[in-house]
């Protein structure tokens, strides 16, 4: 699989592989986790979702990473650069998105992984601005976007199908703002 492996203090980020699928499908069955990121997904829908991430890597040279804990090797979620359709498509911008399984939440993993992914997107993909598409009711994700330094930019957007079930708000920041922040 094309794509880099990024390493942070506690995490490994790499493109998804078939070995991740059982964990991916398990996360798709967590109601709380999936509420704002597409809803509960049966195994076949989880497979298509994960294949779409892998397909994004092939088509665009980027896509969401699988996130693994360095200490245990455990798969804990997926996050990273995401713009289905590419520049000519209907996505509202260059996104770094995130979703971790329930047992991995609340430990700063999402912030740690998203920071590495944003660094990589600005350094390697040449992005000038990053956005996060977040459901208005998804308070933990909004809090993370704000901890990353992003601010509310647009409200009540409908994403292209099949991501059009709920409206989202757009949080974001420029490359200059990201780089100016002391981290």
């Amino acid at each position: 699989m094309n794509g880099p492996t990024l390493t942070t203090a506690r995490l490994i980020l790499r493109p998804p592989t078939h070995a991740d699928f059982d964990d991916y499908a398990q996360m798709g069955a967590e109601e709380e986790t999936m509420r704002f990121i597409g809803g509960l997904a049966p195994r076949d829908a989880s497979w298509r979702a994960m294949a779409s991430l892998a397909g994004s890597w092939a088509l665009l040279g980027y896509g969401m990473f699988s996130v693994l804990r360095r200490d245990t090797g455990e798969w804990i979620g997926r996050l990273g650069p995401w713009r289905p359709g590419g520049k000519e498509g209907g996505w509202p911008g260059d996104e770094v998105g995130w979703g971790l399984k329930a047992s991995a939440m609340g430990q700063g993993f999402a912030q740690e992984g998203a920071s590495a992914a944003i660094d990589w997107a600005f350094d390697t993909l040449g992005w000038e601005h990053v956005i996060h598409c977040i459901d208005k009711k998804n308070a933990p994700s909004i809090a993370l976007a704000e901890r990353l330094g992003s601010t509310l930019e647009r409200e009540d957007l409908t994403l292209p199908a099949p991501f059009d079930a709920h409206k989202v708000d757009i949080y974001g920041q420029s490359k200059a703002a990201w780089r100016a922040r002391a981290r």
């Binding site: 998804p16 294949a51 892998a54 397909g55 088509l59």
Partner: peptide, 12 residues
């Protein structure tokens, strides 16, 4: 998206 699924199928 349909093409991403085709390419993801190859990858997985």
């Amino acid at each position: 998206s349909a093409l991403a699924l085709i390419l993801g199928h190859w990858a997985l």
